[in-house]
Simulated assay, not measured.
Amino acid sequence: MKKYSILTLFILTFYSASFELYAQGCVAIRQFSGLGNAVGQGNILNKGEWNVSANYRYFKSFRHFRGTEEEHNRLTDHTEVINKQHGLDINISYAFSERLYGIVSLPLQYNERSSLYEHNRTDRHTSYSKGFGDMRIGAGYWLLSGEKAQKGNTAIGLGIKFPTGDYAATSTFYRGPESTPTEMTVDQSIQLGDGGTGLIVDFQGLWNIGSTNFWYYDGFYMFNPKETNGTLTNRSRPNEAIMSVPDQFALRTGVFHAFEKIHGLGASLGGRVEGIPVHDAFGGSEGFRRPGYIISVEPGVSYMLGNVTGTLNVPIALFRNRTQSVTDIENSTPDNEVHGDAAFADYLINFTVAVRIPKKVKEVFNSL
C-alpha cells in the first residue's frame, strides 16, 4: 500500500467522524459540537474538490450517576430514566486549497425519553422530540505544507453554531393521579438545540509514528455566551425553572493502524473525554444544566474502497461524573448538600460513510 493511500484512509476514517459528538445521556452534549469532520479532507483534496459524509449515531442511557458514584438502586427499583437517541448528520466539506477547508453540518435527530418522575411518578411513559438540530459552519487551516507535512500535520479551526434546532420542543406528559395528558417542554437532554449562538475553536492533527501507524489527536471548546434560553424546565426550584445554554468541550487521541496486506482496511484504538463545564468561559452560568463529563475508550474499524470510506467507532464508557451545578451549589445548605444526578450510556454506536468527489468528476458533470 502506498503511503499516500494509507494517509488518505487514515484521514477519511478519523476526520470524517471526528467530534461528531453526542449526548451520551442526560449530560446534553449536542452532536457535532465540533467541526472535526473537515479535518484532513482539505489536506488530501485538491482545490475545488468536495467531501460529503453521513454519520449515524445511537445510544441508550440508563445508568444514573451522582458525582462519580453510580446509583444502582435506580435499576433495581425500576425508577431509572431511559434516553434513546438517534442522530443523522449530513456533512459537506470543500477544499479551498491544499491547506484551507470549509465545512457545513446539518444534523437530524429522533429522541425518546422514558421516565416515571416526569409523569405521575407511578406509571412509566415516554416523551419524544424529532427534527433539525443546531447547524454548524466553519473553516480550518493546516499549519504545514509540502515536505514539512510529510510526517504529520496540525490544523486549527473556527466555527459558528447556529440555533436552528428547536430548543423548546414539547411532547405529551401524563400528570397527576388521573394521568391527565398535558403538553409540556421535553427535558433538556432531548431538546433539539440549546438556543444559543456558539463560537467553536478546535484543533486536530496526525503524525506518522512508524510504518503504517499514526498518532491522531483532536479537541474543541464551544463558547456559548448566552446564559439562558427562556425554555421552561418544569422543575420545582425557582433557580432551575429556565434552561441554561452551556459551553461544551472534548478531547480525543489514539493510534490508527492501516493493514498493508488488506488494502483499504484500518483499525484504531484511542480515548476521549467530553462534557459540559459547571461554569461557562464567558457570560453567566445560571439556569438549569447537568454539567459533567465522560471518559471513554474508543475502538474503531474502517474500510476504504475507491473514493468511499466506511467507519464504525464504538466509544465505551470507563468513567462518568455528574458534577455539582451552579444551581446545586446555590440550593445547598450547611446541613444539606444538593447534588443532582444524570443518566449515562454504557456505549455508543457511531457509523459514518464518506464520499470524496474528485475534481475531475465535477468537471465531467459540469460539461454535461
Rank of each mutant, 00 (worst) to 15 (best):
R136S: 13
S325Q: 08
N55F: 01
T309I: 05
Y128S: 02
K362P: 00
T309P: 03
V301L: 09
G42M: 05
V245N: 07
Y216L: 04
K2V: 00
H279I: 03
D77Y: 14
G40D: 08
I29E: 05
L75A: 13
I44E: 02
Y303E: 04
S302Q: 06
T8G: 10
V201A: 14
G254H: 03
N229Q: 12
R237H: 14
V326K: 15
G264S: 09
L192I: 07
P315V: 13
S171N: 04
V364H: 04
Q41G: 13
L312E: 05
V27A: 04
N73M: 02
E178V: 09
Y141T: 01
G266W: 11
L9K: 11
S115C: 04
S53V: 06
K60M: 13
T352I: 01
P315A: 13
Y117N: 03
Q41D: 05
R113P: 00
G87Y: 09
L232Q: 00
L368E: 09
S296H: 11
K161R: 11
N350Y: 09
D194V: 00
Y58G: 01
G340S: 10
I44D: 06
R74S: 15
S114M: 08
M243T: 03
V326D: 05
Y101M: 13
I156D: 04
R63I: 02
L106Q: 05
N46R: 11
S236W: 05
A38M: 06
T309Y: 07
N51F: 02
H86C: 00
L116I: 08
I156Y: 12
D187T: 08
Y101C: 03
M222A: 14
V104G: 12
R66P: 00
N153S: 07
F59G: 15
L100C: 06
F96I: 14
P334G: 06
F351A: 14
A28F: 10
G133T: 10
F344S: 11
H64Y: 01
L318V: 11
Y141I: 04
G292C: 07
R356I: 05
E183W: 00
L21E: 14
N83L: 11
K359H: 15
G176D: 02
W207K: 04
W207R: 10
D280W: 05
F32A: 14
Y293Q: 07
T185P: 07
R136F: 09
L7A: 02
M222K: 15
L206F: 13
F59I: 00
V361R: 07
G196C: 15
S93Y: 02
S268D: 08
F203S: 14
P107G: 12
Q85D: 11
K148W: 15
N153P: 04
A149N: 11
G102N: 10
R235N: 04
K2A: 13
L106K: 04
T76G: 02
Q324S: 03
L144W: 14
T233F: 04
M1R: 02
S105T: 12
H86K: 05
N213T: 07
E274R: 10
L199P: 01
A139Q: 09
R252S: 15
I316R: 02
G133P: 11
V52G: 08
E80C: 04
A317G: 01
D123H: 03
F351N: 01
V364N: 07
Y15M: 09
